[in-house]
Nucleic acid binder design. Sequence first.
DNA 1: TTGTATGCGTTATCAC
DNA 2: GTGATAACGCATACAA
Lengths: 347, 347
Amino acid sequence: MKQKKRATIYDIAKKLNIAASSVSRALNNIGNINEETRKLILSTATELKYKRNTLASNLRKGQSKTIGIVVPRINQNFFSNVIAGIEEASYQKGYNLVICQSNESHVKEIQCVNTLINQHVDCIVISVSAEGGDYSHLQNVIDSGIQLIQFDRVASELKTLKVLNDTEQVSMEAVSHMIEQGYKRIALLEGPQNLDIFIQRKAGYLNALKKNNMPIINELVVENAWTKELGATATRALLNLPNPPDAIFASTSDFSALGVLEVASAMGIKVPSELGICGYSNEAFTEITSPSITTIDQFSIYMGKSIADLYFREMDQEESSRTPITISIKPELIIRASTSRKTQSGK
Amino acid sequence: MKQKKRATIYDIAKKLNIAASSVSRALNNIGNINEETRKLILSTATELKYKRNTLASNLRKGQSKTIGIVVPRINQNFFSNVIAGIEEASYQKGYNLVICQSNESHVKEIQCVNTLINQHVDCIVISVSAEGGDYSHLQNVIDSGIQLIQFDRVASELKTLKVLNDTEQVSMEAVSHMIEQGYKRIALLEGPQNLDIFIQRKAGYLNALKKNNMPIINELVVENAWTKELGATATRALLNLPNPPDAIFASTSDFSALGVLEVASAMGIKVPSELGICGYSNEAFTEITSPSITTIDQFSIYMGKSIADLYFREMDQEESSRTPITISIKPELIIRASTSRKTQSGK
DNA sequence: TTGTATGCGTTATCAC
DNA sequence: GTGATAACGCATACAA
């Protein structure tokens, strides 16, 4: 199906025997224009079902009023919430969103970024794929003069705007909370260590142990356990150790925490009395498992809004202020049943 | 921050002392061109960090290779899955997605649609907001010669492409299953009856009762109970009836089903022995509640792919074939613990 | 207040 | 095979 021929400002101009520039002025309500002719123009515009061609307008103005977004997966709670937040804040400013998903593939991520550059988006917001690799495509964005904002999973070596969670701090709080609840052998399920966020979550874990003078037990630290299945597998191995853990910090996600919980239930191990569990992300389901799962809320929608705000603020700046600002959002530890074994409140 | 001046085909042409048109031909690998100059052009293009300006290209070509999407909420499982499906299928064809959310508001929906029309998207994919109202903005889309595809929540009076679930059929199956399990007084939580999908779910419910010669009991049909909270409220009222239901079909969503389950648990009513519960959508959490919740899977990702496929198929058609095709995807009843009270398998 | 002319970066149609 | 040129639809500097 071909697009029909649509009315242009020239069509309106011709019909009214005036110049196209006047039509343009009227439509944008810019410059001086006779009120009557303005009304006339507006009415014939609707009559001809005129729709501005944003493509042409943007080309002329040299900006697209579009923000490009690249995330590993659109249909993951955290990301779709961030996107929803960005959408809400930027919609008010008349900006549109072009969304791509990298599917955790580095190659697809590069392709996405390149199409967005070609699209002349004004800003690219990205959370990098787990696959990692080199980040010259992001340098490309910067070189193209497009504002680049990284969030959550960032390539830290790049000097760009960043919106992050204070991951290490909250991870430390989580583990400290477990220690305070009397857990002695706390295991860690860690994520791909090529991503900063997972390094930080581990650092928080290690710090908490250190501050509380607890030993670091290597056999309790499991690499790459960041899906429900991997979390389950890791848990089976851990619980079958001669000296098993009495708590597990599933730092990768609530999904792996769920895997932990299911394995524990299947093995007849009581949560939280025999095993404490803490996840990460505050997925909706953590509230309704039995027991409910202690987790960490990342304020994802708010994060999206912050990203948009940051962009609009930067945009208003003088050209000179190219400071690589980093905004850090403090996540919140949500204490629930899965780690509450003392009777007094966990607060 | 202003965008930097970017290299154009003229910059390449000037540098090589050739015509811009040759550069264009080389870059698009179209028409006849000397292989050597082609390579020369390509290499200087990368050297100058040339990026095609898709805006200009699209303007010239009169198409945008962009699909616009309007959904009530981006961060709702069903919708983000559909979007993910569309994204995957359309990305391969070199199409981009522009996404808007209506937040269930009719006014915002109209605004979204209008910006997409202005953006000159090639196709608009929409699931209308619950608020309803008149659909002249969708007629606008058609009049603008833009392909319109409605999915799930559709304005049925409009002759457009549609991708739907076979809602009535599966709803009937769900209720029949409950009857087969021995439930005698099955309540219905219904959604806004200005949306077809909710009308159909109700129709399926009524049909199942009729086919099984069971009476329709008006006090067991509750209007507008489509959030967790509303579902909970409705359930409290239902269970406090002199003659309460022994099963509830939360036809609106799994969230309302969850509300039902929570109220039942709080009241000490056993599920499924004293109360059967069936939800709708197969949200991830339905699998992990205790008991797990019987629900209906809508194949949302597949739905997204079907939408994209439908568009590309139609696009290849002759102009004439403006038949309003409707694709119906059969959803699947997922029988879980919350309705399984006979010992033999629910199959 | 209004009109004229030009350019945004491409692609397509001609000539050569 | 290559180059000049027009056109896509709009916005703006300038002239009237």
